Amino acid sequence: MNSNSPAQKLRFTKMHGAGNDFIVLNGIDQDLSNITREQWQKLAHRQFGIGADQILLVEKATRPDADFRYRIFNSDGGEVEQCGNGSRCFVRFVLDQGLSSKNPIRVEVAHTVLTLKSHPDGQVEVDMGAPVFEHSHIPFNSNGLASKQEFHEILYALPTSNHPGAHDDWVGVVSMGNPHAVQVVGDIDSAPVKEEGPFIEKHPAFPRRVNAGYMQVISRNQIKLRVYERGAGETLACGTGACAAVVSGIRRGMLDSPVKVQTRGGTLEISWGGIVNGVAQPVIMTGPAVTVFEGETEI
């Protein structure tokens, strides 16, 4: 949309999943094809726009095995592949808006199709697909990085800054449709998420950047988690980050499925069956999806 275009009315729904908040837009009944990256940024801006961690766009499916297509834009305006908390809000949105009466619903995202199921108690269950460990598919380049094996997981040493004497963070690397670097910390509250997260996010080992996860293990079935997300900064919850943390923790021999993941915005439950006969099993995430308000704005 150029600067000479007339203002466009935009209907939206504000939602959150465990505090990870979204602007959800119906791209089936309104034309959103010309919205620019700068306009996505303005909509997500917390002082000058509606405010959100991500913007979720509902569109018609482009493949026969899906009911809808689902696109995600970070608060910096960039489009990304996956958002776990957003997927739960997605299914709540399409059911509440009367766009579908199916349950479960199959949703097309960047590289796959997700199966989403709404429970009577308001919780939403998402089959997030299998975790990906192959470096070229994450993508991740480990050249020049020290590594060590811990149970079934290979950890890599990431320098936390360019300053001389800076320590390394040992991270497990996995993709849940988007890349994650997960490390274990002793105390989640004092973890240097805001200080080191931006450096890890843009580390050259990750050509598409990475989400930096900080996990404190409470018991074999409970963790606390903070995530510095690509293009959004630290959020109150990160669904794919919770999945990645649990997968990494199980592979490190620290956790047993299912795992309660306590984020700053709420609790998620993650189940993973591990690797069976050489095949990674799908990760199942269950958590809340809440509508905050509906409105109309002008762009």
Rank of each mutant, 00 (worst) to 15 (best):
I35V: 15
T36H: 07
R37G: 13
Q39I: 13
W40A: 11
W40R: 10
Q41M: 15
K42C: 13
A44Q: 09
Q47R: 15
I50C: 13
I50F: 12
L56D: 08
L56G: 06
V58N: 11
V58W: 12
A61V: 02
T62W: 12
D65H: 11
A66L: 10
D67Q: 02
F68W: 08
Y70L: 08
I72N: 09
S75I: 07
G78H: 02
G78W: 00
G78Y: 00
E79Q: 12
V80Q: 00
E81M: 10
E81Y: 06
E81W: 07
Q82A: 11
C83E: 05
G86P: 07
G86D: 09
F90W: 04
F90T: 01
V91C: 10
V91D: 01
V91G: 01
V94P: 00
L95P: 00
L95Y: 07
D96E: 12
D96F: 00
Q97F: 03
G98Y: 04
L99I: 09
S100T: 15
S101D: 10
S101I: 06
P104D: 09
I105E: 02
R106C: 14
V107M: 14
V107P: 05
E108G: 11
V109R: 08
A110K: 12
T112D: 14
K117W: 03
P120E: 04
G122I: 09
V124L: 03
D127R: 00
M128R: 08
A130K: 13
A130M: 03
A130I: 04
V132Y: 04
V132R: 12
F133G: 02
F133C: 05
H137T: 13
I138F: 09
F140I: 05
F140A: 02
N141T: 11
S142K: 08
S142E: 14
N143F: 10
L145P: 01
A146T: 06
K148G: 00
